[in-house]
Amino acid sequence: MRSTILFYFLLFIGFSCSSCEEELKLDAPGSLVPLTVVDDATLPSIVINNVHLHAETFGDPEDPILIVLHGGPGADYRSILNFKELSHDSMFVVFYDQMGAGLSQRVDPEAFDGVQVFIDELEAVIAHYRQNPNQRVVLAGHSWGAMLATAYVNQHPDEINGLILAEPGGFTYDQTMDYISRSRSLKLFGEATNDFVYQDHLITGSDHNTLDYKLALSTAGNDTGDDANLLPFWRLGAICNIASFEAVVEDNSLLDFNNNLNAYTGKVLFVYSELNEAYGAEHATLVSSAYPNVQLELIMGCGHEMPHFGWTNLYPLCKSYLSEIL
């Protein structure tokens, strides 16, 4: 009976304290995740295929274009902003958050058909910034962004003049699932796994604000060689992530970018990290072998998040590669 009285007391104190403060709502815009370009007009944006995208550029618009593609699907470009340094090396560097991701406009799940919608979006982004047909275009992709770059090249091998790929999960469904299973190993009694699932006990939701917040809290589950809790980001896109993933799980053939890569004969800079044990030289060699002309490089001292934690070592390689191909 004492425990019951104590519980009443704690409950009363808890609610008394809470009643002194403002009542907050999970789904209130701006409470837990930043506003998107739709609600915050101060953010830089472009309109691509009728969707408002968060986008920024650095450098001279007449220089060769370097379009930098973030991971996910559903992440944002905040952690790969180091690539803007290449604007000092005569590159016009373009960043954008893909539809439904980062600070870009949220869209319904039905819009995510797997990969094609992102390929079409990238094609439109290139057209948006390309000033003439002779302006050269290079794609730099990290993780999912590197997969997207490859998916684009697979369909448009003559449209691109260079490729920098940082640890794409794979260019086929099997390769990708193989990598994901290693990078997100399920440890039934581990802290990260149980943290990942326990939040469902305290928070549920169906709106973008709540789901994006929950996805942000889940990032600690990665096991890819870096401290994911130190990786900066603006806002993750949960619906974008879930719907895209479900689409390729339902139809594995959507994730097969490996049937026309031989048509791209230009040199590809393919990098992988020392500390991401889930990736490694074997997987890097397997995945990169889809391209006929590859410069395969190991980035020392970092894990999967090379553009952020390994930029000191990645930058000279990118600079050297770009000066060679352009």
Binding site: E21, E22, S31, D200, H201, G205, P232
Partner: peptide, 21 residues
């Protein structure tokens, strides 16, 4: 601190309600 540094406007406090199963 990391999350607040990442998004300074994030609001601490009592959220009512936050879900159910």
């Amino acid at each position: 601190k990391f999350l607040r540094d990442n998004y300074p406007e994030i609001k601490d406090g009592w959220y009512i309600p936050t879900g159910g199963n």
